[in-house]
Structure formats: structure tokens, C-alpha cells
Simulated scan of single mutants.
Amino acid sequence: MIVSCVLCDKKVKLDANSFEGKRLINHPLATYMCEECKERIAQKTEKRRREGKLRPSLYHKENDGWS
């Protein structure tokens, strides 16, 4: 199955029997994002978190003993 990245429109061939392939087939509203875009977003998010420009509620907090 050929899917398109929602950010860069790069075409990627996925195995229909893989986890992502089955998820996309069974859930039509699910979207696909290529590995390059995932990595780029992760790097930018980490940079914003280190600079203090990301709201604290958006990233994982340390365990405070209540959960």
C-alpha cells in the first residue's frame, strides 16, 4: 500500500500487514507521517522544551507520587 505523508506529501510504500498499515486501513481518519518529519518535529519540540518556550503541561512531567 502506498501512503502519503501529511506534512511533506512524500509517498511511502507500507506493508499492509504491518501495524501502521493495518491502523491506516481500519481507521480512515488516521494519518501517516514519514520518519523524517517525525524526527524533525521531535527535535524542534525538544529544543523548545529546553529553551522554556513550551508550556509545561504539553510534555511529560516527572512522577510526583500521586499517579
Score class of each variant (00 low, 15 high):
residue 29 L to W: 10
residue 48 R to V: 08
residue 3 V to H: 01
residue 20 E to D: 08
residue 51 E to W: 05
residue 53 K to M: 08
residue 40 R to I: 06
residue 7 L to M: 03
residue 5 C to I: 04
residue 42 A to V: 09
residue 61 K to C: 02
residue 39 E to W: 07
residue 67 S to R: 15
residue 45 T to H: 07
residue 40 R to A: 12
residue 8 C to F: 04
residue 52 G to D: 04
residue 54 L to Y: 00
residue 30 A to R: 10
residue 16 A to K: 05
residue 46 E to V: 05
residue 59 Y to M: 03
residue 19 F to Y: 14
residue 9 D to M: 06
residue 61 K to W: 13
residue 56 P to V: 01
residue 60 H to N: 07
residue 8 C to V: 03
residue 10 K to R: 05
residue 62 E to F: 06
residue 20 E to R: 14
residue 36 E to R: 14
residue 38 K to V: 15
residue 11 K to E: 04
residue 12 V to T: 09
residue 37 C to R: 01
residue 28 P to A: 14
residue 28 P to R: 14
residue 34 C to H: 06
residue 45 T to C: 10
residue 2 I to S: 08
residue 2 I to Y: 03
residue 60 H to E: 15
residue 50 R to T: 04
residue 65 G to F: 02
residue 60 H to G: 04
residue 29 L to R: 06
residue 6 V to S: 06
residue 46 E to H: 09
residue 16 A to I: 09
residue 49 R to F: 01
residue 6 V to E: 07
residue 36 E to K: 10
residue 47 K to C: 07
residue 51 E to A: 13
residue 52 G to V: 02
residue 41 I to P: 11
residue 43 Q to F: 10
residue 56 P to D: 10
residue 26 N to D: 15
residue 27 H to R: 14
residue 21 G to L: 03
residue 41 I to S: 11
residue 47 K to Y: 12
residue 22 K to N: 12
residue 8 C to L: 06
residue 13 K to P: 00
residue 3 V to R: 02
residue 35 E to C: 09
residue 45 T to A: 12
residue 60 H to S: 12
residue 52 G to C: 01
residue 15 D to W: 06
residue 16 A to C: 06
residue 32 Y to W: 08
residue 33 M to F: 07
residue 21 G to H: 00
residue 39 E to H: 10
residue 24 L to C: 14
residue 67 S to W: 13
residue 38 K to M: 14
residue 57 S to T: 13
residue 12 V to G: 00
residue 11 K to V: 04
residue 27 H to F: 14
residue 29 L to I: 15
residue 21 G to W: 00
residue 46 E to I: 06
residue 56 P to Y: 03
residue 61 K to G: 14
residue 30 A to W: 10
residue 41 I to A: 08
residue 33 M to D: 01
residue 53 K to T: 12
residue 60 H to C: 09
residue 19 F to Q: 15
residue 33 M to H: 04
residue 27 H to T: 13
residue 21 G to Y: 05
residue 45 T to Q: 13
residue 20 E to C: 09
residue 5 C to K: 00
residue 63 N to D: 15
residue 57 S to I: 09
residue 66 W to S: 05
residue 57 S to W: 08
residue 15 D to C: 07
residue 37 C to S: 08
residue 4 S to E: 07
residue 7 L to C: 03
residue 28 P to H: 15
residue 1 M to W: 03
residue 51 E to N: 07
residue 54 L to I: 03
residue 19 F to W: 10
residue 37 C to W: 00
residue 67 S to A: 14
residue 46 E to Q: 13
residue 66 W to A: 07
residue 46 E to N: 13
residue 67 S to T: 09
residue 1 M to R: 05
residue 21 G to A: 04
residue 2 I to C: 00
residue 59 Y to A: 07
residue 55 R to Q: 12
residue 5 C to W: 02
residue 4 S to V: 05
residue 53 K to N: 08
residue 1 M to G: 04
residue 37 C to E: 01
residue 36 E to G: 11
residue 36 E to N: 13
residue 59 Y to D: 15
residue 25 I to W: 08
residue 66 W to H: 05
residue 28 P to M: 05
residue 60 H to W: 11
